[in-house]
């Protein structure tokens, strides 16, 4: 059960991190007219954070070694 619990904890952390990164008030930091290479800042941030979150999900979603039902 133990290693599974650790894995499950990591998934919750990624989820909560995603909730914080993709919602206001975090977004209001980037909601301004300035841009990177003319691209609007907020969009650049959103797509980067989204891609990063997806990468984190990939890291924590590796199939656990065949656990016999000791899952979440």
């Amino acid at each position: 059960m133990e290693p599974n619990a650790g894995r499950n904890d990591r998934r919750w952390v990624v989820f909560l991190l995603g909730c914080l990164l993709l919602n206001p008030p975090m977004l209001s930091l980037f909601a301004q007219p300035a841009g990177i290479l003319e691209l609007p800042l907020l969009y650049v941030y959103l797509y980067l954070a989204w891609a990063g979150l997806t990468a984190l999900i990939a890291l924590v979603s590796r199939e656990s070694p065949p656990d016999r039902g000791g899952g979440p």
């Binding site: 998934r11 993709l22 979150l53 979603s61 979440p72």
Partner: peptide, 10 residues
């Protein structure tokens, strides 16, 4: 849905 996938295993 992306966030739902983060919790997909649960």
């Amino acid at each position: 849905p992306t966030l739902a996938c983060a919790l997909g295993f649960t």
